[in-house]
Amino acid sequence: MGTLQQIHNWSLTHHPRWLVVIRVALGLCLFIKGYSFMINSAELDLLLQNSRLAAQNDAISIFVTWAHLLGGVMIIVGLFTRWAVALQIPILLGALIFITTQQGIFAAGSMFPLTIVTFLLLLFFLVEGGGPISLDHFFKHHQA
């Protein structure tokens, strides 16, 4: 049995049901942030404008917005949860770097604490997966 299969089996047997609420809240936060970027794209453009990535500003803002929207929905319903989480991790690492270099960790209005909590939850669900109340679990056990 491979290491990934062992981790998956362990996570299914040790997954309390209340973790579903945290997974849904995480997905909802990511979806809301993606919606926020879509409605107020100037916020993300301003953040990216002062970085080394200014040349790819439009492509990055579109990718981040849609990754948050689609990834958030996938995390909420538990569909390809580990893949959706793995897609979010580099985005959050980039956000942490931008926040610390441009705003400072303890600046007023800094999103650093929320970003750290979100990043840690993403790491947790990368290992844990969607759990027993997810579409991943449903499709695995109800194959045709």
Rank of each mutant, 00 (worst) to 15 (best):
Leu79Ser: 03
Ile97Glu: 06
Ser110Ile: 03
Gly104Tyr: 11
Phe80Arg: 09
Ala84Gln: 01
Phe80Ala: 10
Phe98Gly: 10
Leu96Glu: 14
Pro90Ser: 05
Gly94Arg: 02
Val73Leu: 15
Leu87Lys: 00
Gly72Gln: 02
Ile89Asp: 02
Leu70His: 00
Gly71Ile: 04
Gly71Leu: 06
Ile105Asn: 07
Ala107Trp: 05
Ile76Asp: 05
Leu96Phe: 09
Gln103Val: 10
Gly94Phe: 03
Arg82Pro: 07
Leu87Pro: 01
Ile75His: 02
Leu69Ala: 00
Gly104Phe: 11
Leu96Ala: 11
Ile105Trp: 15
Gly72Ile: 02
Met111His: 14
Leu69Cys: 00
Leu93Ile: 15
Leu69Trp: 00
Gly94Thr: 02
Phe112Ile: 12
Gly94Leu: 05
Thr81Gly: 01
Leu96Thr: 08
Leu79His: 01
Ala86Phe: 06
Val73Ala: 14
Phe106Leu: 15
Thr101Gln: 15
Leu87Glu: 01
Ile105Arg: 13
Met74His: 03
Leu70Met: 05
Ile76Val: 15
Gln102His: 13
Leu92Tyr: 14
Phe112Arg: 10
Ile75Trp: 01
Gly72Thr: 09
Leu93Thr: 11
Ile105Ala: 15
Val73Met: 13
Gly94His: 07
Gly104Cys: 13
Val77Gly: 09
Phe112Asp: 09
Leu96Ile: 15
Ala95Asp: 03
Pro90Asp: 07
Ile97Lys: 01
Ile89Arg: 02
Gly78Glu: 02
Leu93Asp: 01
Gln103Tyr: 12
Thr101Arg: 13
Leu70Trp: 01
Ile97Ala: 08
Ala86Val: 00
Ile105Tyr: 14
Met74Glu: 06
Arg82Ala: 05
Gln102Leu: 14
Ile75Met: 12
Val85His: 09
Thr101Val: 14
Phe112Glu: 09
